[in-house]
Design a protein around this nucleic acid. Structure first.
Length: 307
DNA sequence: AACTGAGTCAACCGCGGCCCC
DNA sequence: AGGGGCCGCGGTTGACTCAGT
């Protein structure tokens, strides 16, 4: 008899005993109290000893994904979303590995986020998630918008949430190490009285930097591990997807140039000429990339509020 | 108010790796 | 070496919620 058949048999034998479906409060309470007394692990034995008519697997899942005290509730923050996008670009669907770098978030939650939010965007763009084109779209549109959202939510304490993000990243090997980045964000570019431009720097050592004046740096509160990097931005309407370079304004007030899968290339220098820029002016280089324009012109896509 | 379709997320399932005997 | 049990991971499902009509 095959292993699988044996497994099925053993499952059938116990099927009448075992409960399935949503957990009740009583079951939750049993599990919580048992783990409080005896600790977690040995899930099959735990299930029996605790008097739960559940499989060890089910107990483990319930504990790790729902009952464990340090689990965070609520929506993923833009910082967490950004980290997920970055780590997924590096590791793919290694949800548990990604989750290790988002304290309080479970692999299940991250996986659900990816499937319901990220893959939804891919479907709407009519592209395959995980494809080169989709990765480009994530890098060129989604990440910068998250960054901008972070900046907006950061004020009046601009570095706090970014610092949080970097701390998250410091928990392991991946962190934000690939995000040697430099980008400027000026959310109020379109207003006549622009606030001081703020520039963010991320380096290979997971150090995050911010400064109010990139020309004459005066650090707000940060450490440098490398000389400040000041990115240049193009002064003319960009080419799009030429030699796989994604280079165009991402919003009225931001400009993005990326030529790789990391965030190394992200520049979000405000570009005053882009204030009134209209996506419809774009002359895409290749017909094959028309998908991007079509979809990006739709303001309902890549809407961070919907994430 | 009732219906419907889309979105969300907890839970289940199958598989593979690891460890012990 | 290999069989069996346990554990963890990633994919999938289905119940529930909510917004739109």
């Amino acid at each position: 008899m095959s292993t699988i058949a044996k497994r099925d048999l053993s499952c059938n034998e116990e099927e009448s005993e075992l409960r399935r479906g949503p957990w009740t409060l009583e079951e939750d309470s049993l599990l919580i109290h048992y783990i409080a007394r005896h600790g977690e692990g040995r899930w099959n034995m735990l299930a029996k000893s605790a008097g739960l008519k559940r499989t060890g697997k089910s107990c483990r899942l319930r504990w790790l994904n729902y009952l464990k005290p340090d689990i965070k509730r609520g929506n993923l923050t833009p910082q967490e979303q950004l980290l997920i996008l970055e780590l997924h670009s590096k590791w793919g669907n290694r949800w548990s590995k990604i989750a290790q770098h988002l304290p309080g978030r479970t692999d299940n939650e991250i996986k659900n986020y990816w499937r319901t939010r990220v893959q939804k965007q891919a479907r709407q763009l009519n592209i395959e998630s995980g494809s080169k084109r989709f990765i480009d779209a994530v890098k060129c549109f989604w990440m910068p918008r998250l960054l901008q959202k972070m900046e907006q939510s950061n004020s009046p304490s601009p570095q706090s949430s970014m610092t949080t993000m970097m701390n998250l990243g410091n928990s392991g090997e991946a962190s934000m190490s690939s995000m040697s980045s430099s980008f400027n964000i000026n959310p109020s570019m379109s207003s006549s009285s622009s606030p001081p431009q703020r520039k963010f720097i991320m380096d290979d050592a997971n150090h995050f930097s911010t400064m109010s004046n990139p020309i004459n740096p005066s650090p707000d509160s940060f450490q440098f591990s490398q000389p400040l990097e000041i990115s240049e931005h193009p002064k003319s309407p960009p080419n799009v997807f030429e030699n796989n370079v994604c280079s165009y304004p991402i919003q009225d007030n931001c400009y993005l140039d990326t030529n790789n899968y990391g965030m190394e290339g992200i520049n979000m220098d405000p570009l005053s000429a882009m204030d009134t820029y209209d996506f419809s002016q774009f002359d895409f280089q290749t017909a094959g990339n028309g998908w991007m324009l079509d979809s990006m012109g739709d303001s309902t896509l890549w809407n961070m509020d919907a994430m």
